[in-house]
Amino acid sequence: MSGNPDKQTKGALLEVDDLRVTFPTRTGLVQAVRGVSFSLGRERLGIVGESGSGKSQTGRAIMGLTSPQAQVSAKKLSFDGIDLLSAPPRERRALRGNRIAMILQDPKYSLDPVMTIGRQIVETLRTHEKVSKAEARERALEMLRAVQIRDPARVFDLHPHEVSGGMGQRAMIAMMLIAGPELMIADEPTSALDVTVQLDVLNILDKLVAERGMGLIFISHDLRLVSSFCDRVVVMYAGKVVEQLKASELRDARHPYTRGLLNCMPRIGFERHPLPVLDRKPEWAA
């Protein structure tokens, strides 16, 4: 990263300018993402929105995992000075997993069900780095320990269905982190987990991000969780960014959508009957 002479790289790991994702459907083209722009340094950025806001499609487009029939375009989509849209598929694949990693909502669908967790981590490591089998195993165990799995040697030999959801998600994080990525995209990484487990997983993510100086994009529908975890928050509505702000300043959010979203959730100790509801304005989507 230090070797990059470009001026605009001062701290910006990822730059997204006017990102658009378009899907062809029976009734015509549908734009899921309509001109999203933001930049990311080595920080925790939250992308928040409701279903259909385009938050997941934004993450997928950066990762290069948009389904093949869709069209991705952007004025700029660059990772550490590399233009992701014009990069050849091979280079993109090499980036994926090696320098950019992604965690999905449910580890059940992202881990290979017929391979032990340990082997999956070892394979991931060995596709990105030339290391001996013994060393790969050692590093995998160390990684499992780093995601606070108490008995890594035992978990190493288990299949994904033999572990709980929280354990599976930790294994998934271990697998994604083994190659030492610089950018991690986490799409609802804790939504399928129980609240107490959720916090454990977030703690692990938080430590790893801080220790390794990774950039993190945390995609979630839960505005309150994101604001307590991230440094900055991007709020999306109908494929557009309606507001970008520091997490600490969320209470002073300007956009009525952000404020409505914050307001409409029940909170312990705040009696409001009925709950305020969101009055969606067509101009928000315009």
């Binding site: 409701e50 279903s51 529908h221 839960d222 505005l223 409505g260 979203l261 409409c264 959730m265 029940p266 009957h273 009925p274 709950l275 305020p276 509801v277 969101l278 969606r280």
Partner: peptide
Amino acid sequence: LDASVQAEVLNLLEE
């Protein structure tokens, strides 16, 4: 459900 829709449904249930 999404948070905003959740509020509407909770209000309906209370009503």
